[in-house]
Design a protein around this nucleic acid. Structure first.
Length: 831
DNA sequence: TTAGGGTTAG
């Protein structure tokens, strides 16, 4: 029977792609000890060690069945969020600011204003106000000018220190961490920067730019200087752990350090810890922290809730997120525009577009004004769906209320048009955004270059990449993964191997997404020779966490040039299967070596590669070998493939329990891949059992009624197994003496959900199946994605003597003999 | 000192 808890030896966690740790006992064990002091509490612990403390299974379990589908990194941050301050500035400072703002940001003007106002401005308060306000408007040049002027006239060390801290934090908010460091260094050298405030501001500046290592170094040097970190310092440092790669282990170490040093955590500490969990995909830990906050009587605020909701949405728990959102008002924390855009994005990611759009209406009804991000979120949803008219309408509405399209708006549009293969439109928009003086960022170039590669426009890709480098932008793991995926989808695995090599040379560690893209390319690739050699030879290039080999030339340009010339090797068709599978194993080994945990997507990718392979021996050998890495996951796939029903099924149910915790699209991809593989190799009964288990667990929404079966979210194997099950189900209705509905429908869609838009592969597979079993259905006149029949015709067919035989599925292999009597879930289908 | 934009399966 299905168990609600995973087996003891199984550690399926929800960690971010670049995290390799396992999480032990995520639930906070201190919740039941109300008398324990802060010092006795520790945040839920994470271990970097893969070895669980409890008994080891016969085979290790190394997969990370993370349901997390996206990551957050600092490049997404929009800098310069205005800061609300309780200012102690004078009316003269206000006047000076207005004057500075009205004269267009010329440096000479600000100098004149500063000189003119000098007699009226009051020490650090007024200058702090001026430089902060200028900074809030993005004008860091004049803010610096103002700071330097104030420092030059100020004699008191204390006041100079205040100015320096303000300048550092202002630069930090603007993402100018390097400049902030320069200000800090000068301040320390000149004897006014050695304060907790200056150090904390610099830590925060590094945090905002995602430089966690640097923030920690500053923290250490602060301690070395004899300064005692305070609450703000610790909070900023924990924040750095979130923004610099969602490192929960580090965050919890800092938290412990904080407690040991007698600094009590506050609401912001918890909010920052929650943000780390959200970024790391540690939903359960986030929930424990939230409970801990309640228990500790630390008030929750809108940040707490919004971060918690983000963690829930990112973990695929959109229903839980709605439940939490519904409790907010009772705590006098009212959803704001951030709450809504978080939830809307969560819905959109989970494929619940109707709910996402409903939330927009709800937001308007609640009188919450849509802001820049809300509009961009809505626009991105439409753009991602290829609904460009609606996306542009949102853009217009946004502009009509005075919010200009920004770089995020354009990034969404570029991405959307790129995904639809509308490359001319991509080019046009890129020109338009530059004409509007918008500065393309890493995300812009990532979308642009990947789109061009997808479209085979390598000349354009080269140009865009050259421009990207010229801007001084640095590629990150997502940039590379996106590019690698685009090339993999074209079957250019050779080029991907080069890029993989290049990114490691550049000191960027590939993550599970990078490798999953490469695995996905197998079986549909043009060539595998080269990648195999690369995977083997890149042993010496294993990432060590620091800077790696200094790059001599740019291999990305080289790759594009080769592609533009049409140079990509080919391997004879008959050599592919064997090599492909050896390669998948090689990649798996490499991931293991690099401590990159395969996840559920890896599993689906491998099974899909098996489904593209015509050799049962090769596929079973691969799965058998993969059991050495993770027996729970690959043991189930292997067992079902081999027809080992007895123990496999109970293992499978445990695995399905794990999958149940993930979001619906992740879960359905898993079931789709598994059933496809089983169907492909003739394990049709097994495929049907899996698909029915998926149905029982509501993996696909509203799969069937008596009159209709909806297959549009299924793979062809899953759909075919499901059609058999449905027909057997309605057959039992007929034999029980009930009438079938007048009209029966089989929905396949027309390929909207397939990788190739309009491909219709599912429809063709179902059509062939219906023909082969003689089912009397035909394509509906008004909907090419629907097969229809009348109840009477289908009843007559179901009553025919030969129908039952064609509907009941068998496995090609059943070793040993299945013992259905022991397993209630394996009861034969109702006949 | 804390919250909402980009990559894999489908």
């Amino acid at each position: 029977m299905a168990s609600s808890t995973p087996p003891g030896h199984c550690t399926l966690t929800a960690a971010k792609p670049y995290q390799n740790h396992h999480l032990h006992h995520p639930h906070n064990r201190h919740l039941h000890h109300p008398t324990s002091s802060h010092q006795s509490w520790r945040p839920p612990q994470v271990s970097l060690n893969n070895q669980a403390s409890h008994a080891r299974p016969a085979f290790p379990c190394l997969s990370d069945f993370s349901g997390r589908r996206s990551t957050r990194c600092v490049s997404k941050m929009h800098f310069g969020r205005p800061r609300s301050t309780t200012s102690r500035h004078s009316a003269a400072a206000e006047e000076a600011l207005q004057l500075a703002l009205s004269c267009g940001g010329e440096v000479s003007n600000i100098d004149d204003i500063l000189v003119d106002f000098q007699p009226k401005l009051r020490a650090s308060d007024d200058y702090t106000f001026l430089l902060r306000e200028l900074g809030n408007r993005g004008d860091w040049v004049n803010a610096m000018r103002c700071f330097e002027f104030a420092i030059s006239i100020e004699k008191r060390r204390n006041e100079k220190g205040k100015l320096a801290s303000s300048m550092i934090s202002t630069l930090g908010r603007l993402g100018k961490a390097d400049l902030a460091k320069r200000v800090f260094d000068v301040a320390v050298n000149e004897g006014y920067g050695n304060t907790v405030y200056a150090y904390s501001a610099l830590i925060s500046a590094y945090a905002k730019s995602g430089y966690c290592d640097e923030a920690i170094l500053v923290f250490r040097s602060m301690k070395d200087s004899g300064l005692k970190p305070n609450l703000v310092t610790y909070n900023a440092l924990i924040d750095a752990c979130g923004k610099g790669g969602a490192d929960y282990k580090r965050a919890s170490e800092i938290f412990n350090d904080m407690l040991e040093n007698g600094v009590l955590p506050d609401r912001i500490t918890y909010n920052s810890l929650l943000a780390v969990c959200s970024g790391a995909g540690l939903w359960e830990v986030a929930r424990s922290l939230f409970d801990e906050m309640v228990h500790r009587r630390i008030d929750q605020d809108i940040y707490t809730y919004n971060t918690l909701l983000d963690a829930a949405c990112s973990g695929g728990h959109i229903d839980v997120a709605f439940e939490i959102m519904a409790t907010m008002a009772a705590k006098s924390v009212f959803p704001n525009e951030v709450t809504y855009s978080t939830m809307i994005r969560g819905c959109a990611k989970a494929g619940k577009m109707d709910q996402a759009l409903n939330l927009f209406n709800e937001m308007k009804l609640a009188g919450i004004k849509l802001d820049r991000v809300s509009y961009n979120t809505l626009l991105a949803i439409y753009a991602s769906l290829g609904r460009f008219d609606e996306a542009f309408a949102v853009g217009k509405e946004m502009e009509s209320i005075g919010i200009k399209k920004d770089v995020v708006t354009y990034n969404s549009l570029l991405d959307g048009f790129g995904k639809q293969g509308m490359y001319d439109k991509v080019k046009e928009l890129f020109v338009e955004m530059k004409r509007g003086n918008l500065c393309p960022n890493l995300l812009t170039y990532s979308a642009l270059i990947s789109s061009y590669c997808k479209g085979g426009l390598y000349k354009e890709a080269t140009e865009a990449y050259t421009e990207f480098k010229r801007q001084g932008l640095k590629a990150d793991v997502v940039f590379y993964s996106n590019l690698i995926d685009a090339l993999c989808k074209k079957g250019l695995v050779e080029s991907c191997a080069l890029l993989l090599d290049e990114m490691m040379r550049d000191g960027i560690q590939p993550n599970v997404v990078t490798y999953n893209s490469i695995i996905n390319a197998f079986g549909q690739s043009e060539t595998v020779d080269y990648v195999e050699a690369q995977i083997e030879s890149s042993n010496s290039l294993t990432y060590t966490g620091g800077k790696m080999v200094v790059k001599e030339d740019d291999r990305i340009i080289e790759v594009f040039k080769q592609l533009a010339c049409g140079k990509s090797g080919n391997v004879k068709q008959d050599q592919r299967t064997r090599k492909d599978f050896r390669c998948v194993l090689g990649i798996f080994r490499k991931m293991h070596e690099m401590k990159i945990k395969p996840n559920v997507v890896t599993f689906s990718a491998i099974l899909n590669a098996c489904s593209r392979c015509n050799s049962f021996e090769e596929a079973s050998l691969l799965l058998e070998e993969l059991r050495l890495f993770d027996n729970q996951v690959y043991g189930v796939a292997y067992g079902l493939l081999m027809g080992h029903n007895e123990h496999t099924w109970s293992q499978a149910l445990s695995l399905f329990d794990e999958v149940k915790r993930m979001d619906s699209s992740t879960a359905s991809a898993f079931y789709n891949a598994l059933t496809d593989m089983l169907w492909h190799f003739g394990q049709k009964r097994g495929a049907q059992l899996v698909v029915l288990e998926g149905k029982r667990r509501e993996v696909w929404e509203n799969t069937w009624t008596k009159s209709c079966i909806d297959l549009h979210l299924m793979s062809s194997g899953a759909a075919r197994a499901m059609v058999h099950a449905w027909l057997l189900n309605i057959r039992s209705t007929v034999f029980e003496g009930h009438e079938l509905p007048k009209l029966l429908s089989i929905l396949t869609g027309w390929g909207k959900h397939s990788k190739v838009v309009g491909d219709g592969a599912l429809k063709r597979a179902i059509e062939a199946l219906l023909v082969s079993i003689g089912a009397p259905f035909e394509v509906a006149k008004c909907n090419i994605g629907r097969f229809v029949s009348t109840g009477a015709v289908v009843t007559a067919w179901l009553r025919e003597s030969g129908t039952l035989k064609v509907l009941v599925l068998e496995d090609d292999r059943t070793l040993p003999r299945a013992r259905f009597d022991l397993l209630p879930n394996l009861q034969p289908l109702p006949l």
